[in-house]
Simulated assay, not measured.
Amino acid sequence: MKNAVRTALLTSALAILPLAAQAHRTWLLPSATVLSGTDPWVTVDGAVSNDLFYFEHFPLQLDGLSVLSPDGKAVEAQNIAKGRYRSTFDVKLEQPGTYRMMVLNTGAFASYKVDGQNKRWRGKADQIAMAIPANATDVKLSEMHGRIEAFVTSGKPTSETLKPTGVGLEMVPVTHPNNLVAGEKATFRMMLDGQPAAGLAIEIVPGGIRYRDKLNDIKVTADESGTFSVTWPGPGMYWMNASVQDSKSTIKNAQRRASYTTTVEVLPQ
């Protein structure tokens, strides 16, 4: 029973926050990122895995899923399903332009002792005050805010859905995320609570880890304006991730961990 509880807690943590130090990576993978035609659809997979874009660990929890249409309005995802190793959903692209698909996960964790016994708790931030017993000692609190995204364009790219919300860690594309070409430089800006995430470390990993000996990751650092650039070494799907820990939690005496993950497609020249 203890092993089962420990596994469940680990699975939940992985699904919420993809820290750079973890071997497991969370991701959304659209079946296509650039589409045309009169009746375009896209299917999106979500998973937690060791090897990027390979289903072998856990499905991504889609409780915090939302889809924005090119005009910024919410679109209902269809055919949502959860399998043993992946989750999936469909989106009908009824409007021309760029769609933003995201899974937002927030939560709080606590570890403490009661009468010398170690205790753990996980739930919503506004529940934590009532959840911790008054006689608890060695209390350690943390708040999580994770954002996992993918961008898909039908026809001509648009920018309405690329605007930041000002909450948590976000990427604001300077180069449109559906206009990336191998051998060309792309520029992005990282924001934390609407302000430039200066000095933030970003990891970029091409897919296909399972079929090569080296990770071939690219590590860059955002400048004072939160901006960074990357020249794509080749075509394919790329995973981009950044995370930060600070004291700007909504919970008193808690540390906040914010993360951002996106999958982008780089097309051949």
Rank of each mutant, 00 (worst) to 15 (best):
N79F: 04
I80C: 12
K82T: 11
G83D: 13
R84W: 15
R84P: 05
T88Q: 13
F89S: 08
F89C: 02
F89R: 06
K92D: 06
K92N: 13
E94V: 00
P96Q: 15
G97Q: 11
G97L: 09
T98K: 12
R100S: 01
R100P: 07
M102C: 04
M102T: 07
L104V: 09
G107R: 00
F109E: 11
A110C: 02
S111V: 05
S111N: 09
Y112H: 05
Y112I: 04
K113F: 03
V114I: 00
G116R: 15
R120S: 15
R120V: 04
R122F: 14
R122C: 08
R122N: 07
K124I: 02
A125D: 06
Q127V: 09
A129E: 10
M130A: 12
A131L: 06
I132C: 14
I132M: 03
P133G: 08
P133R: 08
N135V: 01
N135A: 11
A136K: 01
T137P: 08
K140T: 02
L141F: 15
S142I: 09
S142L: 08
S142W: 15
E143T: 02
E143N: 09
E143K: 11
E143Y: 15
M144Y: 13
H145F: 04
G146H: 04
R147C: 09
I148R: 12
I148K: 05
I148L: 12
I148Q: 03
E149M: 12
E149P: 11
A150C: 11
A150Y: 01
T153F: 10
T153K: 15
S154P: 05
S154Y: 00
S154W: 02
K156C: 04
P157I: 01
T158R: 15
S159Y: 04
S159P: 03
S159N: 04
S159D: 11
E160M: 02
E160H: 02
K163L: 08
T165R: 01
T165S: 09
G166C: 08
G166S: 04
G168N: 07
L169S: 13
L169R: 13
L169W: 06
L169I: 04
E170Q: 15
E170N: 11
M171P: 10
T175V: 14
T175P: 01
T175Q: 07
H176A: 00
H176L: 07
H176F: 08
P177W: 00
N178M: 00
V181M: 07
V181T: 13
E184P: 14
T187P: 08
T187E: 14
T187V: 13
F188G: 03
R189K: 09
R189N: 02
R189Y: 01
R189D: 03
M190F: 00
M191C: 01
M191P: 00
M191Y: 03
D193N: 14
Q195N: 13
G199I: 13
G199E: 12
V205W: 08
G207R: 07
I209Q: 13
R210G: 15
Y211E: 09
Y211T: 10
R212N: 10
